[in-house]
Nucleic acid binder design. Structure first.
Lengths: 140, 140
DNA sequence: GCTTGACCTCAAGTTGGCTTGAATTCGCAG
DNA sequence: CTGCGAATTCAAGCCAACTTGAGGTCAAGC
């Protein structure tokens, strides 16, 4: 149960073969070797795919993810860059929580217009504060 | 300070005019009226733009956001759909937290290979559990 | 009353992230 | 061996979300 071919990786990860090949092209993953033409993957690939999917969910681009995970096995970014990314994520998480609260609020609040509702207004004030429509990560 | 033209909205929100017009086309926002040809926006538009940007950050598509926010002012989705979205967000938030922890871990952990590090492994086990390589939201 | 600059429309172009298809190549069960 | 199903490459296509450009309009300051 150590070596997987592309079909097995696809089955276990839910990521289609075409995408796996594409990810390889982009430097996100690499097979451990080939048997004839066929790619052979080690199990760490599944881990990497999990991380990649989390990174995408966080809104990072594939190139950004490459840099965070490293071409080899380990990150390409200096410690503090990684912490900076983590800090970004923290802000991002707070925004999502706010959106979550807002969704629950509009689901439940009976006020005719939310613009009148004090608790909605409070959410919006917080939202504005976190707005930080941030520049993307420095590419250099 | 009640009515804004497109340039002011752009300046205050950081969203370029071209995007504002595009959002209008997609039913995400609407001007309160026109002066001649020029769009005139009310201040609630800024609020809506904040919500839209949060929705995008959460990975919702523009059509999904339209349904969550409603074409008019209020949501188009039934209470329980909204709660379902909020639940999705909760899962999403947990994944981001996990990624955040992972980033901090790889930034700080001195282990030669993270595959050996027990705390890394713990993170990865959690990650697999939340993997929930989810189908997108039901469109119906 | 003219100029000017911010706005308008509409069509076409761009980018990222994949998918699809045609034409092969191969490993392995029978 | 033979055959077949799963993999391969490579180019082209697709979709969402915008951006750009050409050509036109208009309100406001001088």
């Amino acid at each position: 149960m150590k070596i997987l071919d592309i079909g097995e990786v696809a089955a276990q990860s839910g990521v289609p073969p075409s995408t796996l090949r594409y990810y390889e092209e982009q430097g996100l993953i690499a097979p451990i070797g080939r048997k004839g033409l066929r790619r052979q993957y080690g199990p760490q690939t599944l881990l990497r795919l999990t991380l990649i999917s989390m990174g995408k969910a966080a809104g990072f681009s594939l190139p950004e993810i490459v840099r965070m995970l490293g071409a080899d096995g380990r990150p390409d970014l200096p410690r503090d860059e990684l912490h900076a990314r983590a800090d970004d994520l923290g802000r991002q998480i707070r925004r999502l929580q706010l959106l979550q609260d807002t969704l629950r609020h509009v689901a439940d609040c009976p006020a005719p217009s939310h613009l009148d509702c004090p608790s909605f207004q409070k959410l919006m004030r917080q939202a504005e504060r976190t707005a930080a429509r941030g520049g993307k990560h420095a590419t250099r």
